[in-house]
Write a protein that binds this DNA or RNA. Structure first.
Lengths: 274, 274
DNA sequence: CTTAAAATATCAAATCATATCATATAGCGA
DNA sequence: TCGCTATATGATATGATTTGATATTTTAAG
């Protein structure tokens, strides 16, 4: 037998392995580290690290000797998509940290359907603030529902295929009749001081959300800048603040400063505490 | 054979064992330490420690020699995901199989917020039927959203704390304005030919759902029979069918037959792994 | 009051967790 | 192409949990 005591990237990608762990847990609700290690052909150390990773992000609950699935199937995130989402994760996490600082207890908050906003929701959940939350994203709603201090309201509507976003009736009318302190909005692209989206329906929804908020905050990682989509949401000046990450080119920052737009840069340095 | 006087983590995770204890207590209301130790294959010491753990968190009440379930079992909110789930899984699965047979392609279906109904949704997803689904359960919605052939609509409303159920505005009004072919309804208890719930708000919601459906089907495992909750939903005769499992006593079956109610018994072929 | 069963406290052994290190691979730049 | 760095993996040592057993105290029943 060939000895291979130390190795890296033996057969599958780490993200794939983590997805397999989630899959397995979803089916059998719980698994021990020994079982997982045997099933995946990885060492207990690696499995343990994977479980830590998944626990940090709230997908599973760790127990002595193994892990359990986190209540509702929040785990339904396609492995491939989760790999893709991995690239901008550090940026999203940094933006989420800043966004969470914009809230204080007792406020009402609107969470748009967007992966960055969802990341912010995850951070906010950990703060245990007393909040009233409104969202049109069922994944976000499920996340918020696990926090006792947050009173969550779902707008309702049809699920946009391939996403967890709610559109149309009855949520659209509902949004027209409410007022919140803060709204966290995700956008598809930002360019030339204009926010844009790929679909008219989504753009209309976001427009209403911005209108319902006393203070609208757009969360957009640096890669969102520069492109252009079909449907216009509103001008960057119509929102109170844009939070992005530190990979945004200096030139773009100056451009938005010149427009008098509040642009906050989140530092992505504090990624791993080692 | 080989003696193993001292051991740790012999076959299942501690958290799983505690969940099993809780489930057993929910079924038979009380259990002795000796019984539990024999059933779980653990020592009395371990069982005693588990009972202490569950008592500290308020799940059960300790007595000399055993433990009792703490008050109303199903209404309790579990902050810990580890304890939840896994209860009566075989029964729910069997009921879900029958429920799925009630649908045909192109129909509109209402999924109530209930673990049994959610199980039915899981089975239905696998069928790849072309359906329009409406639900007031965000966990169910997330599940349905992963199936391309199902067009899902969420009612909207406030999340009932500790659950994934949506109540109140705007979903309640929305339900008043729609009509569906089939509604799968979960109930808290069935007794004397009456469905009951623990909360007025939930009962009102279910009443509307039943009203919106051309054919309402109640999914209730056998343990739901016999108890009685505060709020009345409707008479068993007001729905088209009740689907339950084969652990329902013969006497109860005859009782409902005599009332002229369609009671379908799902066979639970597989048993729970203890 | 007596007695058997249960609770409590404690201990030894096994397993698990954590931190650290050595190695292998991938990616990157010169 | 070559070397460098970052990341991932497995191994290992050390401390923490868990578990079953046992001795002792407490409880409940007759």
């Amino acid at each position: 037998m060939t000895e291979r005591p130390y190795s890296a990237r033996v057969d599958i990608l780490p993200a794939q392995r983590r997805a397999l762990i989630l899959e397995r847990l979803r089916i059998q609700n719980a698994a021990s580290i020994q079982d997982l290690a045997a099933a995946l052909g990885a060492s207990p150390s690696t499995v343990r690290r994977d479980l830590d990773y998944l626990t940090e992000r709230g997908y599973i609950e760790r127990t002595h000797g193994g892990a359990l699935i986190q209540s509702a199937p929040m785990t339904r995130f396609e492995p491939e998509a989760s790999i893709a989402a991995e690239t901008a994760r550090a940026q999203k996490s940094a933006i989420a940290q800043i966004a969470a600082q914009r809230l204080s207890r007792g406020q009402s908050v609107l969470f748009d359907a967007s992966s960055t906003v969802r990341e912010a929701a995850r951070v906010i959940c950990a703060l245990n603030l007393s909040l009233t939350a409104v969202t049109n994203d069922i994944a976000c709603a499920l996340l918020l529902s696990n926090t006792a201090s947050i009173h969550t309201i779902v707008t309702g509507g049809a699920i946009r295929p391939g996403s967890t976003t709610l559109l149309g009736s009855p949520g659209q009318d509902f949004l027209g009749g409410i007022h919140v302190d803060v709204a966290f909005i995700g956008v598809h692209t930002v360019s030339g001081g204009i926010f844009t989206e790929t679909s008219l329906e989504v753009a209309a929804m976001k427009k209403r959300m911005i209108g319902a908020a006393r203070k609208a905050i757009v969360l957009a990682d640096s890669r969102k800048f520069g492109g252009q989509s079909f449907c216009e949401i509103c001008a960057a000046g119509d929102v109170a603040e844009i939070i992005t990450d530190d990979e945004l080119p200096e030139s773009v920052r100056r451009e938005y400063d010149a427009m008098g737009i509040t642009l906050t840069i989140a530092a992505t340095s504090e990624e791993s505490p080692v």
